[in-house]
Nucleic acid binder design. Structure first.
Length: 283
DNA sequence: CTCCTGTCCTGCCGGC
DNA sequence: TGCCGGCAGGACAGGA
């Protein structure tokens, strides 16, 4: 589920459930996530009010209101999901429900993560940005600090493929396997091109493609590959608009493209991960 | 430094 | 039907 659009959809779903509410109690059923949930986590957050929820890359950071000086970092990993139960709903507990936030109005927020690649840990509010991974992260693709020029600069000297470079969170934050493939298709750039060979004019197209595909995906509620994507259980539907991702062998959506006559969208493996692309339109 | 590979963990799907 | 291999939206350590 979770690349930037899915994480942003989750963040927006969390706002009405958490904001300006006190965490009355926190139940940690498993602490052995990607980063262990520390023993003091509950005590650090219980009794505090959630003042803000922001997103950085694929991370959500929740900030407690004064006098607390704590924030918490949430990452969904590969299989992380959030379910919200409003006070009128019956709460059920499923396998792999690892952490439950109980709010002072009776709302329950459940972090569910079968593979346990996710993370939930505390960080001081004043210093979270200055420590890893945030201190190492590239620009927000939907923010003002991102442009073709900035992207071109980040690709300079990088001998990895442009596809691998887009997955590097130091180059640009929040892009994952799906949207890297989709953005490269939209920009007409082959995923196998060396990052440092991408010209400024191409980097500009790519930066616009990244912005465009991420924005559209957020509006569509993200992509749901399996199971639900959103905090209320609704499905995202951007997966129906994939041009190349998971579409091996099918013609790309450009009506005039002749790729269908020669096998359509191709799947290759780059640094251990699937890449999908149109061999005709992406050069 | 940069880069590539393997690994963490569980579930699901397709093939036999 | 059941078993097994391969694959999955991410990130990081360790070694070349």
């Amino acid at each position: 589920m979770p690349e930037l659009p899915e994480v942003e959809v989750v963040r927006r779903g969390l706002e009405p459930a958490m904001l300006s509410k006190k965490i009355t109690s926190l139940h940690v059923r498993r602490r052995d996530l990607r980063v262990p949930v520390p023993d003091r986590f509950e005590a650090m957050l219980e009794g505090s009010m959630v003042q803000a929820l922001e997103r950085r890359g694929k991370y959500i950071i929740g900030h407690m209101a004064a006098p607390s000086s704590e924030s918490f970092v949430l990452h969904l990993g590969m299989s992380g999901r959030i379910r919200i139960y409003t006070p009128d709903q019956t709460v059920e507990t499923l396998k792999h429900d690892h952490v439950v936030f109980m709010m002072d109005d009776g709302t329950h927020i459940v972090f569910h993560d079968p593979r346990r690649f996710g993370m939930l840990y505390p960080v001081p509010t004043i210093s979270w940005q200055s420590q890893p991974p945030f201190s190492l992260m590239g620009p927000e693709p939907l923010g003002n600090g991102f442009s073709g020029e900035v992207l071109h600069g980040a690709l300079a000297g990088r001998r990895i493929s442009i596809k691998a470079a887009l997955l590097d969170q130091r180059v640009v934050s929040g892009v994952g396997n799906i949207y890297a493939c989709e953005a490269l298709y939209m920009a007409g750039i082959s995923p196998e091109r060396s990052a440092c060979d991408v010209r400024l004019e191409e980097a500009d197209r790519l930066a616009h493609a990244i912005r465009s595909v991420l924005t559209d995906a957020i509006e569509a509620g993200g992509s749901t590959l399996k199971d639900y994507a959103q905090t209320d259980g609704k499905l995202g539907y951007f997966q129906h608009r994939f041009s190349v991702y998971d579409r091996e062998g099918r013609a790309c959506p450009e009506a005039s493209c002749v790729c269908g006559e020669s096998g359509g969208v191709r799947r290759i493996v780059q640094s251990g991960r699937s890449t999908f692309y149109c061999p005709v339109r992406q050069v």
